[in-house]
Design a protein around this nucleic acid. Structure first.
Lengths: 232, 232
DNA sequence: CGGCCTATTGAACCGGGTCAAGGTATGTGG
DNA sequence: CCACATACCTTGACCCGGTTCAATAGGCCG
């Protein structure tokens, strides 16, 4: 029996389009791997050798300039696919934000398997198109929104992303209370802001009664409408 | 004889993976269309009904906020694929920047055709992955680079993109003199800057002898190394 | 309790936005 | 052919949001 049978993301990851025989074959070329928070899996600029499905935890995709400025260009949640298939250079680092578990493949093995399973490639194509849309939307935020709008938008995004940890079923309503899976520094790296600005905006929203901050990781949305208005 | 036989992008667009019989079939569901500069083809937020290959000219993908701020999130060149296949809402407008010619498909027809031709889907997947990489790289620029770095990066990008109009064969060396296909306003919308800041940075680079500006559309790179240094 | 790490707060500065005034091409009609 | 209009670009002065630098405050664990 393959370990995929008990996989919590079996029906949400790209594997969902495969029948049990195919999933068995895919299982044969993959392996599980646990990552600790902060551990890197893929480094920017290296040749692409690994791809993976996220089973549990969260990872960041990031780039940086030589002089140390960093930007998080994406966040991978359970069931997301990470890495760069089809023989290119990996242009972004992948690092675990929390302890995480992934289902890992050698890129070459995965490429070959994908080539033999068009349904898998189509699934991956759909995901990639959706991810591209989301990434482009984020560009508007990075380029044009004020710090207040950025932070408000981010909190709203988190409140709908974090519905049922590891369960991204659409239709669930957003949370009004959740723990941020990011440090202030990481929030800054996502929004293109400094840690101080993030902190100030959070304090401001708290002072205005829009959100509550019970402790440094928790967020409570007290006035969703006001938060949406702040998001621009 | 199908009009694809004489198509200038026949061997560079996604059609390149199809044999002549398949291309004939694809031609049967598509049609040519000419666009004037400024003409919109797809509107943000609408249901996705059209997809297309760019044959000639350039188009922009853009989003905006309700209060009128705009951001260009991508530029499509000849042989690029535009539109959102697979039944989603189009999240970005597509507008011709120059007079342009496209090869247009009803999204439903294209989806079906693609479903029957895995090689086409794989080609599209590869392109989409590459586009996602490029888009993510651009996020670093938008979020973290200074106005000077943005403008310098933009000029370098143009100098390599505009090699042989409509010919993106890799390996060609970048141009040292070219006409910008964008107005200052559009450059601002790409870089997340105001028109004034773009203008000032261009003037600055000119004053420092890094570039020449023979007229309002033309750019001459006089000191590529200095320009690269400015790009950060 | 003390050490360490992260977050908050404060003060000063500055890059780029904003507002406003010219400049420079192109076209248009007298 | 010139006067004028229009669109786009450049330049200047000012100002503000967000960064920078620096100090303080909380949590957490020994």
């Amino acid at each position: 029996m393959s370990s995929c049978d008990t996989c919590v993301v079996r029906n949400r990851a790209i594997c969902a389009v495969l029948d049990s025989k195919e999933v068995e074959a895919l299982n044969g070329i993959g392996r599980r791997r646990n990552l600790e928070a902060g551990e890197a899996l893929i480094w920017e600029g290296e040749e692409s050798v690994l791809v993976a499905n996220v089973i549990e935890g969260m990872l960041k995709l990031s780039t940086g300039t030589e002089d140390g400025r960093e930007q998080i260009v994406g966040v991978a949640y359970p069931s997301d696919f990470i890495g760069r298939p089809f023989g290119a250079r990996t242009s972004h680092s992948v690092t675990a934000l929390t302890d995480a578990r992934v289902c890992l493949f050698a890129r070459k093995d995965f490429d070959r398997f994908a080539g033999e399973h068009p349904a898998l490639e189509q699934k991956l194509l759909r995901r990639t198109l959706a991810e591209l849309d989301r990434t482009r939307d984020w560009m508007l935020l990075l380029a044009r929104k004020s710090a207040e709008e950025k932070v408000a938008t981010f909190l709203l995004e988190m409140s709908s992303r974090l519905v049922e940890p590891g369960c991204e079923a659409p239709g669930d309503k957003p949370l009004d209370r959740f723990d941020l899976p990011f440090s202030r520094q990481q929030i800054g790296d996502i929004l293109g802001l400094t840690i101080e600005t993030v902190s100030r905006q959070m304090t401001r929203l708290k002072r205005d009664g829009v959100i509550g901050l019970p402790n440094r990781r928790a967020v409570e949305i007290l006035d969703r409408q006001a938060l949406e208005a702040s998001a621009g």
